[in-house]
Amino acid sequence: MVLSDRDYRLIEAIQDGLPLSSRPYADIGARLQMDEQAVIERIAALQEEGIIKRMGIVVRHHELGYTANAMVVWDVPDERLEEIGEQLGAQPCVTLCYQRPRRLPEWPYNLFCMIHGRDRGRVLEIIDEMIASHDLREIPHKVLFSGRRFKQRGARYQ
């Protein structure tokens, strides 16, 4: 999908949030000199194309009690990456699962999963259960809990 200047203005206009008003799309349209129906159609099209992943709430997970945030990284043999990536990605506790490049010799891990929990002990138990039930004992891994959060905001577009 080719984005027009108008699409970019729309993307910029709503990036910080939708108006909390009865007709939010009409309000945005009024700012951009677009009518409500055009705003609705373009936002729906952006979502259809996956440029907007979804509309709705973005939580501050720390403030909601998700303070045990573990990045679990694995050094998976390349030929098993698809299989293990699919398996771990399907775990209900895994919120993100990505392949990323190794940076040898400093960093041998090529599969990254995020597990967000309320309690470190429980998160570690979940990881142990995952290793046992998927027979991952041979796959070297590390658990990196987050300590201080220095900055959290979404990416900016203009």
Partner: peptide, 26 residues
């Protein structure tokens, strides 16, 4: 609307709106 406003004010929500796909936005 009142509850969304309140949760935003209390910083329980980071935003209310779109989540963009960075790569698809170029």
């Amino acid at each position: 609307i009142r509850r969304l406003n309140r949760m935003l004010e209390r910083k329980q929500l980071s935003r209310f709106g779109p989540m963009y796909h960075a790569e698809r936005l170029g």
